[in-house]
């Protein structure tokens, strides 16, 4: 009796998970169909598959948009790590007055919606001729992700046993060696988690990208949104473009799932 119940719950769990995952599976499946098959009703669950739609997507120049997304995401993530690691280190291990205030300040900037700063940012960038500039976009992404990164990084630093740091200090390690040789290796999984989360947020960002880029620096999300003109059949090619757009993050998220979960849970709870 108990066993039957348990099996039933497991089956129900799988059905529900399948429903949640269905849109993504359907997107990938549709991307491999012909336009005719993709738009057929009733939907075709068996169809001839090919990568033709992907060729069309690349012919429409998606490569350069993906490259822009990559530049902005990787660049901003590196900058965030460069700023957040020392800051979190000082906030956790080194003596500093008013740790609470500083932490509170960082997290409060995250509560400020993009709406709060978009207008001045737009006009300043326009004035200095930096609209449609991938560096400018990357800097803004770094500012957007910095608070979460500091917050998460600090929770990871809090897990470093103080004795190790003290031992290093007695050994006479100066600040830089202490940070680089002693603390950093212990932190690598945490850094990976922070980097991954910053990368995901930047890669998926739409609001700033739409408003601040037009062509040269346009990233994938606004490109996707302008991809559909509503004429003719486009489901298969749209699915192919969307699959390409979401694939890097999904793969990264799956591979580093442990770090991701730990990072989100740590950042959220500690």
């Amino acid at each position: 009796m108990r066993k039957i119940r348990s099996t039933l719950i497991t089956a129900a769990t799988w059905v529900l998970v399948a429903i949640f995952f269905f849109p993504i599976a359907w997107m990938v499946f549709t991307s491999l169909k012909t336009e005719g098959d993709a738009a057929s009703i009733p939907p075709k669950f068996i169809a001839a598959l090919s990568f033709d739609q992907y060729a069309i997507v690349f012919n429409r120049g998606m490569g350069s948009y993906l490259l822009n997304s990559l530049t902005a995401s990787v660049g901003s993530t590196l900058l965030v790590l460069l700023l957040a690691i020392p800051a979190a280190y000082a906030l956790s291990i080194r003596p500093i007055k008013r740790v609470q205030d500083v932490l509170f300040f960082f997290i409060s900037t995250r509560f400020l919606p993009a709406a709060a700063s978009i207008l001045p940012v737009f006009f300043i960038l326009k004035t200095i001729g930096a609209l449609d500039n991938i560096t400018a976009l990357g800097l803004l992404y770094a500012a957007m992700n910095l608070p979460i990164a500091v917050w998460m990084m600090r929770s990871f630093f809090n897990e470093v046993p103080l004795e190790i740091v003290e031992a290093a200090q007695i050994d006479g390690a100066n600040l830089r060696t202490e940070l680089v040789r002693v603390v950093l290796p212990i932190l690598l999984p945490g850094i990976a988690a922070v980097a991954l989360i910053c990368f995901i947020f930047s890669w998926n960002e739409y609001f700033l990208a739409t408003l601040l880029t037009t062509f040269q620096a346009r990233t994938t999300p606004p490109f996707l949104a302008s991809f559909v003109d509503g004429r003719g059949q486009f489901l298969a090619v749209l699915s192919a473009a969307s699959t390409l757009a979401v694939l890097p993050v999904i793969i990264a998220g799956w591979v580093a799932q442990k770090q991701l979960v730990r990072g989100l849970a740590m950042g959220a709870v500690k």
């Binding site: 997107m27 999300p221 949104a225 757009a245 979401v246 799932q257």
Partner: peptide, 18 residues
């Protein structure tokens, strides 16, 4: 966890059209 990883713009388009 995958729906959280998917780019919101792509998800919105797929939901809307597909």
């Amino acid at each position: 966890i995958t729906p959280f990883l998917v780019m919101p713009a792509a998800a919105a388009l797929i939901w809307k059209w597909s």
